[in-house]
Design a protein around this nucleic acid. Structure first.
Lengths: 203, 203
DNA sequence: ACGATAAACTGAGCATAGTCAGAAATGACT
DNA sequence: AGTCATTTCTGACTATGCTCAGTTTATCGT
């Protein structure tokens, strides 16, 4: 029942759309690519596109999902042993910075569409759960740091992860919307922010 | 030289545009208002509008600037004495939350347009300096807290303010894009985040 | 094999943000 | 006042994201 002709046709069309969007965004950029371009390359009617994605921005979620998943896996897989929590976090988040740096303009639209959407519909819902799962893995790293005595034992690891992600998000936005280069954003802006978050302000 | 006919005409047109945009956004909402609506109410040609603002989103910066300035003044003017830094911050940022709560949909577009813009052109440049000045006033509050011994004396107040703003920004975005009500976003999400930032994670 | 029903597709058409070549208004100079 | 140069304005036009009434395609019961 999963391999009915209908199902297969739909899957193939979605795959073609995804591939076409990927290719065109990569070669022409997001703004210069029209939805008609994508529909044509995908061999699909101009209106059919919007049966598969909610709008043009939703195409970005379609394209980015797999790439982000890859980055997350790579980030945690390559995590060296014996790093401090700070260095672990910078290692992990650097993968996103590097990935977004490949096409900052398109990435900016993606991040924007993902964060400023009241109702998570279409492909964007998948991205939301992806982020939630990533958050869970962050919590694990914080817990590990707690267990090896690097952080106070009564620390709320979930809240800690939220704060780290918030600081990362702000640094990302500042970088994507600003002028600083990626290395500075990562090794200065983000490092300083994380460092202060860990150390705290009292004492 | 400031009151040449040309200058006066331009100022008056800009004022009419601002007023028209304000009224229409307030009554019909951002999405439902067309740029032609605004041009018509402002008694200006459809193309003239774009000599005064870069694009439709830029109209939001035009409209929001004064309002935000008002909020900033009100926030600091009403700051009670003898508050902890945490409560001071929550007092200050609550003004923005309350203001944005008046029209979350339009506010979302505004925040989005402000944060995800590579080149700060048009009215948006003014908004950027406004935020920078606000950041300066935050630093003053942090310094004051340092001076009364609430925070460690070697704390970098600028970095501290950056982190507070980052946490605020993330909470704002989560609230505008999500489902939690304003009170929760403010008195739980933001308070917990600030609290952890002040306390830190070690010790 | 053949209708009948439902699902999926299509592209002409719509709405509207933003552009630009020409028109109009203003200022400067004689 | 007349003439030219510069600034400002204008609305017809363009580009494009998205819709929807009508069409095609797949599925199922007989």
């Amino acid at each position: 029942m999963e391999t009915s002709l209908r199902q297969r046709n739909k899957q193939e069309k979605l795959a073609r759309i995804k591939q076409a969007a990927y290719d065109l965004f990569k070669s022409k950029g997001y703004a210069a690519t029209t939805t008609r371009d994508i529909a044509e390359v995908a061999q699909v009617g101009a209106g059919t596109l919007f049966l598969y994605v909610k709008d043009k921005q939703d195409l970005l979620s379609l394209v980015y999902f797999d790439e982000i998943a890859r980055q997350i896996e790579a980030a945690f897989d390559t995590l060296p042993d014996n790093l401090s929590l700070l260095d672990e976090l910078l290692h992990i988040f650097s993968f996103f910075f590097k990935f977004y740096a490949e096409d900052p303009d398109t990435s900016r639209v993606y991040i924007s569409s993902l964060t400023f959407q009241k109702e998570l519909q279409g492909q964007r819902r998948k991205a939301a759960t992806q982020i939630a799962q990533f958050g869970g893995r962050l919590v694990q790293r914080v817990d590990a740091a707690k267990n090896r005595g690097e952080l106070r034992s009564d620390l709320d690891a979930v809240q800690a992860s939220r704060n780290f992600f918030a600081l990362y998000f702000a640094a990302l936005v500042a970088w994507l919307g600003g002028t600083t280069d990626m290395e500075t954003a990562l090794n200065q802006v983000l490092r300083d922010a994380f460092d202060l978050q860990i150390k705290g302000m009292i004492n």
